[in-house]
Write a protein that binds this DNA or RNA. Structure first.
Lengths: 230, 230
DNA sequence: TATATACGGAACTCGGCAGTTTCGGAACCT
DNA sequence: AGGTTCCGAAACTGCCGAGTTCCGTATATA
């Protein structure tokens, strides 16, 4: 996906195997440039981002960027597609309870990563309806992985009999993401550990018919739902 | 908020009371121009919108727009601030149950209105972090009214003893908005009546300790949560 | 060593948009 | 009527960013 103009390594049957002499392209710069693009994208959005900003932050020349990507649109597409997966690839927690697993997913690193992803999504928002390819890439990189994790945690809870399978797990798997993005982008309030716990205990677990956590709400103290009814 | 350069009606002590002769400004055009701006905004976003597009759609001249608003930024600010409240000002439904009230709020008009508001929000997304004033205005017009309605419905449910007050009502009042915006902007799926009912029955009501609707789910048939446990 | 390419940096072209001005015509006031 | 201001349309200015080209230098092959 990253390199585009290698001599003739793929498909090309005719005039193959160009010897490719001269200085070689330094592909170790690609990630630095793409990271710079993601940063600028999160800070200023697609329209506010300029190629010169990206080149400047990556300490590269503008021509270097155009040697590797044919246009701003393709650079952004590649940057989003290659965005680091961070610790989402870490092994899933297995605490024995759904609540424990969900709480264990709340780590400073993953909060910061989710926040950056949401900022990038906000920066791309007005482009998504004009570029289906970008929309698909952004979905696959920024939205789907987090939902997949929750789906897996829910499925394990079903397997061990903690919850029944007749809930709308597909919807509940994205509740926390939806609430986080709404809070950050619409309400413009911080998405911190306390907020995420209040979503788990006040929305997700009650919707699954489970009680909220008993007295281990990490010093939050109030707000979180604690119902005892019937 | 709309008119800006009236002669000297406010503050100005010196050289007051300009007689204002000549043809008068046709203020009946203001709403048409602002509506056109909202449409373009929803379609192309803030950066993609041009003054000429707005003038063209409103069948007005570009100079006419600049006679009324000093800049594109102020035009957009005014357009968002003056965005029609639609039927959100209609009297609240009062069906006697929280679920009935929530379902009664789902009308084709309000769905379409919410969809346009979300498109506008998406078009403004990358600007919100650069213009706090725009962010505040967008929040007050596009986000807050809907949450206020849910807050009022919840409060009435508390008053008549249908639910207890120890839930995180502040969070639950925005769950449906958050899920709708996530579905439309991130998942890029339609926000229809069936989806909104599944949010009410599968997330909001269970989180409040209430059962989902019994057998009157309007032909949806499956998906909606119906738990019976212990 | 000679040639060819990549590099960072800077100058350059080109097109589009914000904002201004001008124009003929229409509406308003005295 | 006569002057003043608004109107829509179009020409115009100034700026900025996408994309290109050129330069001096660094690094590769032959």
């Amino acid at each position: 996906m990253t390199q585009l103009d290698l001599p003739a390594e793929t498909g090309a049957a005719e005039t193959s195997a160009a010897p490719r002499l001269g200085r070689k392209r330094d592909h170790s710069r690609d990630p630095e440039i793409l990271d710079a693009a993601i940063e600028i994208l999160a800070e200023t959005g697609y329209e506010g981002m300029t190629i010169e900003m990206v080149a400047g932050r990556a300490k590269a020349g503008k021509a270097t960027l155009y040697r590797r990507w044919p246009s701003k649109a393709e650079l952004v597409l590649d940057a989003v597609a290659c965005m680091k997966r961070g610790d989402l690839e870490a092994p899933l927690p297995d605490t024995g309870t759904l609540r424990g697993d969900l709480i264990a997913m709340i780590k400073p690193r993953s909060i910061a990563e989710a926040e950056k992803k949401l900022q990038v999504m906000a920066g791309l928002a007005s482009m998504l309806s004009r570029s289906p390819e970008l929309a698909d890439t952004a979905y696959a990189t920024l939205v789907e992985p987090r939902a997949n994790i929750n789906r897996a945690l829910f499925q394990r809870a079903v397997d061990r009999g903690e919850i029944t399978g007749d809930h709308d797990l597909e919807t509940l798997a994205v509740v926390s993401s939806a609430m986080a993005s709404y809070r950050l982008l619409m309400l413009r309030k911080p998405v911190d550990r306390e907020f995420l716990i209040s979503i788990i205990d006040g929305v997700v677990l009650p919707a699954l018919g489970l009680p909220a956590g008993e007295g281990e709400t990490a010093g939050a103290g109030e707000a979180a739902g604690r119902r005892r009814q019937g």
